[in-house]
C-alpha cells in the first residue's frame, strides 16, 4: 500500500511549483494558472488527510474548494480582460503605474 506521506509530499511539491510559477512568470495568465496549482495542492492535502482520518467531510470541503477556485478563476480572468482592454498586454511587470 502507498504510504500516505507520499501524497503529502506530492502536494507540497505541487504547492512549491505553483509558487515558483507565480513569482517567475510575468504573464498574468500563467500566474493565474500557477495559483490554480497551489489551490489544487491544498486540495490534495485535504483529501489525503480525509483519507487518513476516513472522514468524508474532507470531500465536501474539497468540493467547496473546487467551486471557489472556479469563481476565483472567473474573477481573475475578468480583471485580466479589463487590464488587456486598457493596455493591450497582460505582462504583470509592466503594470507599474502606481508605485512607492
Amino acid at each position: 500500500m502507498i504510504p500516505p506521506t507520499y501524497f503529502l509530499y506530492l502536494a507540497a511539491l505541487l504547492f512549491a511549483v505553483g509558487a515558483f510559477g507565480v513569482i517567475l512568470r510575468r504573464n498574468a495568465i500563467i500566474m493565474l494558472m500557477s495559483i490554480e496549482l497551489m489551490l489544487n495542492a491544498a486540495n490534495l492535502t485535504i483529501l489525503t488527510f480525509g483519507r487518513i482520518h476516513a472522514d468524508p467531510h474532507a470531500h465536501a470541503f474539497a468540493f467547496m474548494v473546487i467551486a471557489v477556485a472556479a469563481a476565483e478563476a472567473a474573477v481573475g480572468l475578468a480583471i485580466l480582460v479589463g487590464i488587456f482592454r486598457n493596455r493591450r498586454n497582460v505582462n504583470i511587470d509592466e503594470l507599474t503605474l502606481m508605485k512607492y
Binding site: 509558487a19 507565480v22 513569482i23 510575468r26 511587470d93 503594470l95 507599474t96 503605474l97 508605485k99 512607492y100
Partner: peptide
C-alpha cells in the same frame, strides 16, 4: 520603500513568501 514598493506585483508576492 522606493525599492520595495516598485509597483511590481511579483515583488509583492515575494514579500508574502
Amino acid at each position: 520603500v522606493k525599492y520595495l514598493q516598485n509597483g511590481d506585483a511579483q515583488r509583492y508576492v515575494v514579500g508574502v513568501l
